[in-house]
């Protein structure tokens, strides 16, 4: 995945069973963001893998004032890349479950 300057990691072990997963997002390279992002630190949240889209979460983060509107696409892409990896991994490790 392209380096967006925004890091998204699992905030918990993934057992492949839960429909939701805890993720943690933080800015590694603020220069890659268009808007001035506050020094937010790490933002942890729960993501419903089946029901939600990364764009929903990215927009909520902008609404909550963590990021500037102009960065919503970068935030959404960063989350999307991590979610895709989680789903790819789940299908490989627990094929029977998926």
């Amino acid at each position: 995945a392209e380096d967006t300057g925004v890091r998204v990691e699992l905030a918990e072990e993934d057992d492949g069973r839960k429909s939701s997963i805890a993720l943690r997002l933080w800015v590694e390279d603020a220069k890659k963001l268009k808007g001035k992002s506050k020094d937010n630190g790490a933002i942890e949240f729960t993501f419903e893998l089946e029901k939600e889209t990364p764009d929903d979460v990215a927009q909520e983060m902008v609404d909550a004032g963590f990021f500037h509107e102009s960065d919503v696409k970068i935030i959404a892409k960063s989350i999307r890349d991590r979610v895709a990896l989680i789903q790819w991994r789940r299908e490989r490790i627990w094929p029977m479950l998926h």
């Binding site: 942890e44 729960t46 929903d56 909520e60 983060m61």
Partner: peptide, 27 residues
């Protein structure tokens, strides 16, 4: 503890904490 919680109007909770030093990329 230096955690703060922000709840979005749609109901999602965001827990904000300092990024561990080890995870910060050298600037």
């Amino acid at each position: 503890n230096s955690f703060t919680e922000v709840v979005h109007s749609a109901g999602r909770r965001f827990i904000v904490s300092p990024v561990p030093e080890s995870r910060l990329r050298e600037q």
